[in-house]
Design a protein around this nucleic acid. Structure first.
Lengths: 331, 331
DNA sequence: GTGAAAGCGCTAACAC
DNA sequence: GTGTTAGCGCTTTCAC
């Protein structure tokens, strides 16, 4: 077995308590003891066993982040923000991917129940508001990026309705009045609220909502292309399209180019999220940026605060989004 | 505090030992006791504390995967393979991103030293062979995807030299003899060995190696485009380019198209990794595929085997790669 | 088939 | 400033 605090104590000629004090930076240790202990620690190459420490302290200083997917997304940027903050305050971030399935998510949540982690951040979840509320009574849970209506759980996200509104207003300002919408049938705030923003933008500019200009399926890549083909089948095609994700927008752009439609010239297409691919595409893709790093830092900071609180902060914090215009809208 | 094994025992009117036996599926428990205990567990909503269990058993059943970046879809596919195998044998996979910095990597490795995890898989590392060898004496460590010359550590990866060779042979077979190479100055097997494969392919086909056709910088996206501009500045341009990563190839393709060079017609470009964007690009990108899921499963399986072994398996396992020809090479 | 009790490695309260 | 010791929640040996 590996070397323990006992071994260090014996070797250094002090008690385990003194070693523990040195490890935890207590000031009530003489310089001499501190030196002896530190020297012994490095000589024996000792590393404290966190299972013992954590069991004793009832905390692990680890936060689990559950995300629906790890590919082509803004999640990696959010996690970077989380890690940057967490490392500053002595926490570790670990991640798990649920592939948007509740079986995986439920299994991963076990790490919370069995005290392997101190808290969980959900970047999108299959849990409903009731389950989350119950969960939050006993555990430290937060939502990030994707809120849940009716959940009284700490949440950090953009204002999706306003963001959808701003995106569509940008298109209207460029002279478009026939604006297609690519959304999903999935009841997620990021989908429904962005659609509501689209609708409000049209209404406020006296543009009649044409249900034929609304195409909804899923988040899957292929759906963007299918949406584009559908719009092209209409006698009166939209001159601009707002998609609720960059992936859907990119798929639509590819299909457009394959059909000989010049994106940015013949049609304007706008996405959402500002994933890195937006800048790698030709044309580069207009989109709505979420402040990923900031969201990550913020949610972790507030989650850690909650851990030491009797009454938990369960606010819905809104962070600023930003419309970015690039070639796909003719900019 | 939360409910413990003691509470369950008291409630069920049995000893903690009996509860423990039920939890761990021991057969030496009467049906009656089992029923009573299980009923109490679900009534109290008890979940065993893994810190206690793990401390006692000196194992956590968790494997940490450290990766240089999370945006590279290659890694997410590998991790999926790991997870699929791990969940079958009762292990959990957690991930951490090092951003190719040794500070982050060293910090993350603490989870190994302090027994938070049972083993670590490194998908690329800043550690040198000596450090890894020393590490592997006391801990369960494996490399995946990116081997280290001189490291006697369990490794699963493709044969990068052969893969580079095969890629360039595919270009030669299509009639190319002026073949540019986009690599890096970074001393990593995936870079140096693919370059060696490129050189061998030329030599074996009596093509003189022209140092002007070799461009090396870093893995960053922009470098692919810069490489392409450089090649265009030569009086005699290459007719084909082999890049050691899809990202570099894609960057080169974008620059080419921007310069009016038709990729797949005027020039052939081949990448490496087969990230999903290869199929989304226009033209679709020829590349060398690594069997990601298989690599992930294999390395985790062998790592777990090592945990219960006196003398550890430290072989370098090679898995099959596959050249995939698409539009960017005129296919 | 079941229970008592030791002990995994650590921290912290208490005594000196 | 330092040491002794109880105990975090659990598994497992040993008695019975």
């Amino acid at each position: 077995m590996s070397v323990t605090i006992k071994d260090v104590a014996k070797e250094a000629g002090v008690s385990v308590a003194t070693v523990s004090r040195v490890l935890n930076g207590s000031c009530n240790v003489s310089d001499e003891s501190t030196k002896k202990v530190n020297e012994t620690i490095s000589r024996l190459n000792y590393s404290p066993n966190f299972l013992g420490r954590n069991l004793r302290k009832c905390e692990t200083n680890v936060i689990l982040v559950i995300m629906p997917t790890s590919e082509h997304s803004l999640y990696s940027k959010i996690v970077m923000g989380m890690q940057s903050y967490a490392s500053k305050v002595g926490y570790d971030i670990i991640t798990a991917v649920s592939y948007s399935t509740s079986t995986a998510e439920i299994r991963q949540m076990n790490m919370l129940y069995n005290r392997t982690v101190d808290g969980v951040v959900l970047l999108g979840t299959q849990f409903d508001a009731d389950s989350l509320n119950k969960l939050a009574e006993n555990y430290n849970v937060a939502l990030c990026c994707e809120g849940i209506h009716g959940a009284n759980v700490l949440t950090v996200a953009v204002n999706d309705e306003q963001a959808g509104y701003d995106a569509v207003c940008a298109l209207i300002k460029k002279g478009h009045r026939k604006i297609g919408f690519i959304g999903t049938n999935i009841s997620a705030i990021s989908s429904t609220d962005r659609e509501n923003g689209y609708l409000r933008a049209l209404r406020e500019h006296d543009i009649e909502v044409d249900p034929r200009y609304i195409y909804k399926e899923t988040y899957d890549y292929e759906c963007g292309g299918r949406a584009f083909e559908y719009f092209c089948s209409l006698e009166e095609r939209p001159t601009a399209i707002f998609a609720i994700s960059d992936l859907l927008a990119i798929s639509a752009i590819h299909t457009a180019e394959n059909m000989g439609v010049r994106v940015g010239k013949d049609i304007a297409i706008m996405g959402f999220d500002n994933i890195s691919m937006c800048e790698w595409m030709m044309p580069t893709v207009s989109t709505v940026e979420q402040p990923c790093a900031k969201m990550g830092e913020m949610v972790v900071a507030k989650l850690i605060e909650n851990m030491n609180k009797a009454t938990k902060d369960n606010h819905y914090y809104t962070v600023e989004h930003k419309v970015i215009l690039r070639q796909s809208t003719g900019d």
